[in-house]
Design a protein around this nucleic acid. Structure first.
Lengths: 122, 122
DNA sequence: CGGGATCCACGCGGATACTG
DNA sequence: CAGTATCCGCGTGGATCCCG
């Protein structure tokens, strides 16, 4: 009783795998989410907002998102330097999908946590 | 120009972080997606369908999903043993959110891949 | 067949120090 | 301020063997 013949096997040919591999990391989705709430943010503002991210990982994450074309990086030529990050059109088109996931998370978090603590699995 | 005052900082109090930490692993979303397409699957069927997952990781993934209450595990008491996995109500409620993400992935995969190869970032 | 138990490599990601 | 460079611990996840 299968619906579509989707090939999940090979990572390269499977968009699901590709996308999930990209945004399955620790910080990407969170950065997109935050940039969706505040439309422009500086590096330090982002870091303070997330709170627990290291400079290195925030830099790496932003670089990847910029490379994917999801985030724009605007540099103001001044001293001290000022850099602002914001979502691109592409990034904005992804935002509602992630927010939809977040909404589900908010609605079902309690139930999942209860299930998990009952089962005893870490 | 911020919208909601969301506290992204502490992982425990932030549903986003919690959910993303759970499903941000390598196989969870894929398993949910496949079980959504085929409503019942045995362990080996799942493994062959994914193709590149090890026994260990599939077992761990299914255990976590079962502990969360997203997947049901039905054991048939016979020799050789037969176990069927399927999505629970909770799992089914998550499915469309993930499929929505997959749809976005399919639509924008090419553009992202192009962007990334142009930028030179791995 | 459906896993559990072990061992181990690799890479993510944190801490720290330094620079334009 | 906005990063880069380096070092390194630790957890994810693969390979292999074993068991009911």
């Amino acid at each position: 009783m299968k619906k579509n013949e989707i090939n999940f096997a090979e990572a390269e040919s499977c968009p699901v795998r590709n996308i999930l591999d990209r945004f399955g990391d620790k910080w990407s989705t969170l950065v997109i989410l935050i940039l969706g709430n505040y439309d422009k943010l500086r590096f330090n503002e982002l870091q303070k907002m997330i709170g627990t991210v290291s400079q290195k990982m925030l830099a790496v994450t932003l670089k990847k998102l910029e490379a994917d074309g999801l985030v724009t990086r605007k540099v103001y030529p001044q001293v001290p330097p000022k850099v602002e990050y914001s979502l691109t059109e592409l990034g904005l088109s992804l935002l509602p999908k992630i927010e939809s996931l977040v909404q589900w998370a908010n609605e079902n978090m309690v139930e999942i946590t209860e299930n998990r603590s009952l089962s005893g699995v870490k």
